[in-house]
Amino acid sequence: MSKFLKPAALLAALAVGVTAAHAGGKFGLGREATKDEVAAWDIDIRPDGTGLPDGKGNVSDGEEIFAERCAVCHGDFGEGVDRWPVLAGGHGTLSSDRPVKTIGSYWPYLSTVYDYINRAMPFGEAQSLTPDEVYAITAYLLYMNDVVTDDEFELSKENFTEIRLPNEENFFEDPRPDTATLRDGDPCMSNCKDKVEITMRAHVLDVTPDSEDDEAAAGSID
């Protein structure tokens, strides 16, 4: 054992009982992960249900957990408090001036709901929910979004992939470039327009930080 190994690294090495480099790779660096280590970190879920843990939860349990752990930011019905994200509603708004993107109106896959809540929520207390709790909250959010209408509905690993979200079909692959390239001709260099007029000023809608009128305006960063 190298005398340069820090105590923490030494403990970590001892804990897993492996100190030797693995065989097989070109550089012989790193070591093989244990099954428990992979299980501890590999929590991701895919649309086909890959990664879902055993468990189940129903709408009414979900409502209770949601009220306790989520509603302070997202509202009792997922309507969003202040500027915290809205989780329900928004149907029929996607082609309007103010689209409301929610699990019900926008998200293509239910697996994303499970995966995200399980990995990142509640905000500031991530990865503190049990699988049954995440199933129950997910069932409640399906109910709040009218994807299921039965308030006794129970979501489980077994019936999970039977549920489809309504907007799944409305995503398509990136078609860019969708604006001009040099194949459309060289860009114009002179007399490109007859006249130029100012059509809009940021001044009019001055939302620049530190300006007098620091009001929320249209637009969002994500």
């Binding site: 895919r46 082609s95 689209p99 994303t112 995966d115 995200y116 995503f171 398509f172 990136d174």
Partner: peptide
């Protein structure tokens, strides 16, 4: 062997068009 379609590539970072349909996996910065 398949993409995961996680939150940051479905709810976010998909580009909503005027007709209500959305582009996904718009990776390159033009």
């Amino acid at each position: 062997d398949e993409p995961w379609h996680h939150r940051e590539e479905t709810s976010k970072y998909t580009d909503l068009m005027a007709n209500g349909k959305a582009r996904r996996f718009t990776w390159e910065m033009d």
